[in-house]
Amino acid sequence: MRRRHELRAALGFLLPNLIGFGVFTAGPVLFSLAISISNWHLHRTVAFQWIALRNFVELLHDRDFWLYSINTAYLMLGIPVAIAGSLFLAIVLSQRLRGIVVYRTLFYLPTFTSGVALMLLWKALYNPEFGALNAAINWWLDSLHLNELVQALGGGGVSAPTWLLSTKNMLGLDVEQIRIIPGQWGLGARDALIIMGIWIAIGGNNMLLYLAGVSNIPPELVEAAQLDGAGRWAIFRNVTWPQLAPTTFFIVVMSFIGGLQGGFEQARVMTLGGPAGTTTTISYYIYTKAFEEFQIGYAAALSWVLFSAIFVITMINWRLGHKELHY
């Protein structure tokens, strides 16, 4: 009697959310699948047709797609650095030090204010001619006489990177083809975005999660290890790190999901995907295809490929993570 009554009440309470969910999530997901097998052009410059899987075939032959996938992966190289930094900061912060709230506030500030304003700030800092960063680098190069030193050793000149204007990168990836050439080795736009990303993320949500994780470690475990004469590194390796494994697992999974669909805002605000497409990620590519070239069908197909990649990689993470968690 009561149960039937509650089902009716539950439906009433769920109704607003269910309608919203149906109209803006469930419906669109199915609709997006349908769009992805069409050649839909938003301004109808081509006649609408169902083209089955032709978008996906075209995508496999789309060199830009592969180049931008590599860009996306490259920008994710900052993730492990940021995670390690967050862990390190959390461990240092979790010691009973004065002013922890002040430090936490300062470290969290970039995460909290991140968005267009911070990106415009970094764009100004990275400006090779007028930016503060290169002004500082050049000042150091001059005052240390580094240029003369390198020339005396028989090298070429040392100059500050041109950051957002440069296609160079730490791996030496070429611009037009998928290969590595020595001339491309250096610091460029992608590295600038990675550095900014680490600066934003290092004291952010991941650090807060690690702080909570560290404070949940039973002190008996640490005391027992200390009685056995374990040093600080041994305690970290054998107590802290395994105890934090679930936290690390969660952070890694979420970072992969975020990284794979990331890079849109940076590209739109700071670089417009350039120079020469080197900061175009998959999500920015989808945006340009859909809302600048109006190829809605192709863009929807791209978004499903991205979704599949996220799904597969998350599943792999689960498999690996669970093995890791039970050792």
């Binding site: 969910f21 769009i35 999901i257 849109f264 978004s303 991205l306």
Partner: peptide, 20 residues
């Protein structure tokens, strides 16, 4: 089921929602 929808990337929903 509700929770599972959190996995759908925003970019998949942007295009159909825009046309909507």
């Amino acid at each position: 089921l509700y929770l599972a929808t959190l996995m759908i990337p925003g970019v998949v929903l942007m295009i159909p929602n825009y046309t909507l």
